[in-house]
C-alpha cells in the first residue's frame, strides 16, 4: 500500500480564536469579529467559509462576511437557528471559538475585474456576499458599476444598517432594497426581491451577477435575470449545504458528484445548470 508515501493531513483540529467584537444586527443575527491566534490572517477569498465550533455545541460551516482586504481579523454573521448558533449568541468579546479553514471555492476576483457588479442578496444571503461587496468597494477603481439588490422578509431583518446607509449615500454604489412585509414605519419598496430586477438598466455584456439567498429564491432570480438577457456565463451563485467536514469527506454537502465544500460554495452558473438537486 502507498499509505505511507502520501502527505497525511490533520484535518479536524481547530485554531482557537478570539471574539474581539460582537455587533447586534437584528433580533436573530449578530456579527462576530474574530482574530486568529498570533495575529495570523485567515487568507480567504470572498465567498469562502470556515468551520466554526464551540466545544460542547459542535461545529458548523459559516461564510465569511468580510473582505480579505481587511487583514488580521474577519467577520462571521450568524443567525441563531440551532444549538451551536444559539450558543454563539451567548458568547462575548474575549471568548474563544474554534476555527478551521478557510474552505471551498470563493469568487475568482481576477475574472471580475473591470465588470459591472450586480449583487442579488436575499435575506441572510447578504452575509456571504458582503465579503465580495466589501472587496469591490476596497478596490473600487477595479470595477465598473456596483449595483446591490437586497430583499428581506421585513424591515426588522435588515442586516448591516450602518453599511447600508453608506452604500445608499455613496454616488458610486447603486443600492436597491425591498421588504416582503412592511411595518408601519417602512417607507421603502414592498415586494419580493425579483421585483427589483426588471427596472435595472444593465449593460448585460459587462455585467456579472453574484446571487445568494434562501433556496427558494434562486429559480425566480434566474428567471428575472434571463428576462434581462443576462448571459448564463455572467452569473455566479453560492449554494447552501451543511458542510460538516469542509474537506470533501463526510458527504453531507454532495450534489451528485459535486462536493459543495470543495467545488463550491461559489459556482459558475453554467457549471451547475444541469446539476439536479442543486437549486
Amino acid at each position: 500500500m502507498e499509505a505511507t508515501t502520501i502527505q497525511k493531513q490533520e484535518l479536524y483540529y481547530p485554531l482557537m480564536s478570539e471574539i474581539i467584537q460582537v455587533d447586534h444586527l437584528t433580533r436573530t443575527e449578530k456579527r462576530f469579529i474574530i482574530s486568529l491566534p498570533d495575529g495570523q490572517s485567515l487568507g480567504h477569498k470572498p465567498g469562502q467559509f470556515v468551520e466554526l465550533s464551540v466545544f460542547g455545541f459542535g461545529e458548523a460551516p459559516i461564510s465569511i462576511s468580510s473582505s480579505p482586504t481587511k487583514t488580521g481579523q474577519f467577520d462571521l454573521t450568524i443567525r441563531a437557528t440551532g444549538r451551536l448558533t444559539d450558543k454563539m449568541h451567548h458568547l462575548k468579546t474575549g471568548n474563544l471559538v474554534g476555527i478551521r479553514g478557510p474552505f471551498g471555492n470563493g469568487f475568482d476576483v481576477s475574472l471580475l475585474k473591470g465588470k459591472d457588479m450586480l449583487f442579488v442578496c436575499g435575506g441572510i444571503g447578504l452575509a456571504p456576499l458582503k465579503s465580495l461587496i466589501d472587496y469591490t468597494l476596497a478596490r473600487r477603481s477595479d470595477f465598473g458599476r456596483i449595483i446591490i439588490v437586497y430583499g428581506t422578509k421585513n424591515p426588522s431583518e435588515i442586516l448591516y444598517p450602518s453599511e447600508i446607509k453608506v452604500w445608499q449615500e455613496r454616488p458610486d454604489v447603486e443600492f436597491h432594497m425591498t421588504v416582503d412585509r412592511p411595518d408601519v414605519n417602512w417607507e421603502g419598496k414592498v415586494g419580493v426581491i425579483t421585483t427589483l430586477i426588471p427596472p435595472l438598466d444593465l449593460v448585460v455584456e459587462r455585467t456579472v451577477a453574484a446571487v445568494v439567498g434562501p433556496p427558494v429564491m434562486y429559480k425566480f432570480v434566474l428567471m428575472a435575470l434571463k428576462a434581462k438577457r443576462l448571459p448564463d456565463e455572467n452569473i455566479y451563485m453560492s449554494l447552501e449545504r451543511r458542510m460538516k467536514c469542509g474537506v470533501g469527506k463526510c458527504g453531507h454537502c454532495q450534489i451528485n458528484h459535486t462536493y459543495v465544500c470543495q467545488d463550491g460554495p461559489v459556482f459558475h452558473y453554467p457549471d451547475i445548470k444541469r446539476l439536479e438537486e442543486a437549486i
Binding site: 455545541f57 458527504g251 453531507h252 438537486e277
Partner: peptide, 29 residues
C-alpha cells in the same frame, strides 16, 4: 460521517466525535 460534541456528565469536559452517517437517512442532506 457526522461530527458531534459529547459533553461528559460533570459538564467540565467532553469529546468531539465522529460517527458513521448514511445518505439513505432522511436528514442527511
Amino acid at each position: 460521517f457526522d461530527v458531534r460534541d459529547e459533553v461528559s456528565l460533570d459538564l467540565q469536559s467532553g469529546t468531539r466525535e465522529r460517527f458513521w452517517d448514511g445518505c439513505m437517512l432522511n436528514r442527511f442532506a
